[in-house]
Write a protein that binds this DNA or RNA. Structure first.
Lengths: 276, 276
DNA sequence: GGGCGGCGATACCGCAGCGGTATCACCGTA
DNA sequence: TACGGTGATACCGCTGCGGTATCGCCGCCC
């Protein structure tokens, strides 16, 4: 299964084998065996590389999910072994107020356990949660997806544009997405995809919040962020509400079906504090 | 992993080994090896059997999830290989009208594919969906859980009590749950749990809807069911609204993160038909 | 109290199956 | 036509899994 995902990602037996630390022939055999077992052709072998069939597409997706589930099972079990305590992931430099309210509400509840806070780079919280490295995470829909997770909505807000102080649009009282789309000399920032890679484009690659603020201040890019991010803004960045940006919902998310008493307490605190 | 789940369920190495079709010693070794790999004790071995540690509890749950994910990956891939078409699971004898509306809406949409209907015994739809045997299922919250699934709410309704025609409560205009709780000589029916087993109790084990109706008519049990089930009632069964029963929501559920175009069409049809 | 039965752990063995090297068959290109 | 690069095949060696036999431990019951 790991083998198939590697081949499907590389679309090349040789490279996939190298990535897996093995030789190419046993990999070919393993894939052929998998295809026999499933009774389906997964890969179209052209003499110049490999392409995925429809069934291969499905197995790539489902296989990633399954591998993640196995890895998560191991990680969660390891953590269940050692000292009690919750690990909560949150994006560094965002939702600070929200987090404070949540943690206070939990600490005030019945028998709280220590909460270890894990501040993440952009988009990393979701990965950590799905990998079972943390018990819960603060996610931001629609930037993150809650598909396959349990979640509780905490707060919804509009978005604002962050612009360099001297920019022509910076003096406006509101802007629209279309006006921001193709600003001359001010390319849109590029955020990491779920797999950690970045889309192609002219703008800078963004890893965390403070870096983004700095790049805006330097006139290298702009940003569209939730309203609450204005609370920790540098003075040399202008803020303009964006009328037609999709609203952003902050949610507390956790692995579905958890039986942890401590996690249940955190969720209850969240529901209580944000009037679920 | 399969090994551990078997042992954790049986709480007995010998029985677990028999269930797995292998001998006991290699099973013991495999579990010990798993514990070494995870660096955690999973089982307390008493000389008279086995008990789960906290970490073992977690791994039992997570392991089931992971095994289900692997099995689902295989099943979905197998189905992706062969002829296009959706498989939709629904509880036999329930939500007939809902189903008709949904299927009509889908068939009227853009490029529909054939929909294969799989009518299930009580509680089986959820299992089939999670196992990847079907593309989507009609579930009934709170009887089913949508944890770890994507879903779209279709319809919410109250519940009614089904009582034998001559029963003292049958003439009432409404009843309350507490009044139904301990009726002398009329035990509550027992529905299967997620794993297919039944709770202990005096009432009959229920496998499907028509069986339940028959048992009520015969004065052997009563039932609390969604309002819509009155549409296919036998005349010898009395219906009384239950004031404080939790409302039941019918939802269309599917595996999260699916990329199937056909499934997306079905979901869109559902949203359109039920004003999502 | 001693023998017995049932539990999981350990010792040892045999072989299936996985991964390695060498090589082939195919195809596009120079 | 020769060459480089692809995945498939042939064959081999060894690791590791599962099997049988046995042990050590504990509770039970005559």
């Amino acid at each position: 299964m790991r083998y198939f995902v590697a081949v499907a990602e590389e679309l090349h037996f040789g490279r996939a084998a190298r990535r897996l630390g093995m030789a190419q022939p046993p990999l070919s055999r393993a894939i052929a065996q998998l295809e026999r077992r499933l009774g389906t052709v997964l890969l179209e072998r052209d003499s110049r590389g490999v392409a995925l069939t429809d069934a291969g597409q499905v197995l790539l997706h489902e296989g990633r999910t399954a591998l993640a589930a196995v890895a998560a099972a191991e990680a969660r079990t390891r953590r269940a072994g050692r000292p009690p305590g919750l690990v909560l992931a949150s994006k560094a430099g965002a939702s600070t107020d929200l987090l404070a309210v949540l943690l206070d509400a939990y600490a005030a509840g019945p028998d709280p356990v220590p909460v270890d806070l894990r501040l993440c780079r952009v988009g990393e919280q979701e990965r950590l949660l799905r990998a079972g490295e943390v018990d819960a995470a603060l996610l931001h829909v629609p930037f993150n997806s809650t598909a396959g997770l349990d979640s509780e909505e905490l707060h919804t807000e509009g978005q604002v544009a962050l612009l360099p102080a001297g920019h022509p649009l910076a003096a406006r009282s509101t802007v629209r997405m279309a006006e921001l789309a193709e600003l001359p000399g001010l390319p849109a920032p590029r955020f990491p995809r779920h797999d950690g890679s970045f889309p192609e484009g002219a703008g800078p690659e963004i890893h965390d919040h403070s870096q983004l603020g700095q790049l805006v201040a330097l006139g290298r890019t702009f940003a569209v962020l939730p309203d609450s991010s204005r609370s920790q803004l540098r003075p040399d960045v202008a803020v303009v509400p964006v009328l037609d940006a999709p609203p952003v919902t902050s949610v507390l998310a956790w692995a579905p079906g958890s039986t942890s008493r401590a996690l249940a307490g955190l969720v209850r605190a969240a529901i209580g504090a944000f009037g679920g």
